[in-house]
């Protein structure tokens, strides 16, 4: 497995948190996904070996939990809340705005590789609806105007990198 030395360190640390190694399955998947971007076949076999499990024990976990992915996504991950309180405040419009801004569809990587826009279920911030989680940062009251602003910001950051 090709991971940062720091990731290996954190993996060895987190396994000590549990009396039973298997419990470290989710933490290991998180750490590897954060480092590698997604969960490859190699990662599944590697985790299974590390935790003395069968690969199927890891694969069944990966396929159960929506946050784990088997394929790469765009550079930024835009998760728009789809659930009732956000929808009541225009969440669908918010999602559409992001899709339009990046010429993409839900669940796909945008043509410029910059973002993947997705709908997710309630993010537990319904009082500030509609909400959007971009990578690890929660944005509140994201109406269409604010979605446009956030998109512009992402585009500007992408341009600065080039």
């Amino acid at each position: 497995m090709n991971l940062k030395p720091e990731t290996f360190q954190r993996i060895d640390e987190v396994i000590t948190h549990y009396p039973v190694k298997r419990s470290a399955t989710l933490p290991l998947l998180h750490l590897i996904q954060e480092d590698a971007g997604h969960i490859s076949d190699e990662a599944i076999t590697w985790i299974a070996q590390k935790l003395e499990l069968q690969p199927i024990n890891v694969l069944e976990v990966v396929t159960f939990y929506p946050m784990f992915r088997r394929a790469p996504i765009g550079r930024r991950h835009i998760k728009v809340c789809r659930t009732l309180s956000c929808a009541l405040s225009g969440g669908y419009k918010t999602c559409e705005t992001f899709e339009k801004e990046f010429c993409t569809h839900r669940g796909e990587i945008s043509p410029d590789g910059e973002v993947t826009v997705e709908f997710v279920e309630c993010l537990a911030s319904c009082g500030t609806a509609p909400v959007v989680l971009i990578d690890e940062t929660l944005h509140t009251k994201v109406d269409a105007t604010k979605a446009k602003q956030l998109s512009d910001q992402i585009k500007a950051e992408a341009a600065a990198r080039k």
Partner: peptide, 26 residues
């Protein structure tokens, strides 16, 4: 210790949560 879930609502149900903490499907 802090243990992170991975986007499944059913992990809030206490026995689903326990399965999840054991490294399994919730």
């Amino acid at each position: 210790y802090v243990h992170r879930g991975a986007g499944a609502y059913i992990c809030g149900e206490e026995t689903g949560l326990i399965e999840s903490l054991e490294g399994k499907r919730a």
